[in-house]
Amino acid sequence: MNLIKSFNNNVALVEDSSGTEWVILGNGVGFGKEKGAAIDEATIKKKFIAESTSNSRQPFLEMIEQIPISIFEATAEMIRTAESVMGTELNQHIFLALADHLNYAVKRTRDNVDYPHTNRWELQKLYPKEHKAAIEAIRVVYDLLDVILPKSEETFLTYHFVNAQGPSARLSETMKMTEAISRIIEMIEYHYDMQLNEESLNYLRLLTHLRYFLLRQLHGEKLEQNEMDDDLIDLIKGKYSHAYECVEKISRILKKHYEWELTLNEKVYLTLHIWRLIT
Rank of each mutant, 00 (worst) to 15 (best):
M1V: 04
N2F: 11
L3V: 10
S6C: 00
E15L: 00
S17A: 15
S17V: 08
S18Y: 03
G19D: 05
L25I: 11
G26S: 02
V29N: 00
V29D: 02
G32M: 08
K33C: 04
E34A: 12
G36P: 03
G36M: 00
A37I: 03
K46A: 05
K47D: 02
T53Y: 05
R57M: 02
Q58W: 09
L61Y: 12
M63N: 15
Q66E: 09
I67C: 05
I67M: 04
E73M: 03
T75M: 02
M78N: 10
I79A: 06
R80Q: 14
T88D: 02
L90E: 01
N91T: 06
Q92S: 13
I94H: 01
F95G: 00
L98K: 13
Y104A: 14
Y104G: 07
A105W: 00
R110P: 02
D114T: 14
Y115S: 10
H117K: 14
R120S: 07
R120E: 07
W121N: 13
K129Q: 08
K132P: 02
I135Y: 10
R139S: 12
V141N: 05
Y142K: 14
E154S: 03
F156I: 04
Y159W: 05
F161E: 01
R170V: 02
E173G: 10
E173S: 15
K176I: 04
T178C: 05
T178Y: 09
T178H: 03
I185S: 00
E186A: 14
I188M: 00
I188V: 13
Y192S: 00
L196D: 08
N202Q: 10
L204F: 09
L206C: 00
T208R: 11
H209Q: 08
H209I: 01
F213D: 03
Q217I: 04
N226G: 14
N226F: 07
E227N: 11
L232P: 06
D234L: 12
I236F: 11
Y240V: 08
S241W: 10
Y244M: 07
E245Y: 15
K249N: 12
I253G: 09
L254W: 03
Y258A: 10
Y258G: 02
Y258M: 06
E261S: 13
T263W: 01
N265R: 14
K267W: 11
L270H: 06
L277I: 03
L277V: 02
L277A: 09
T279W: 06
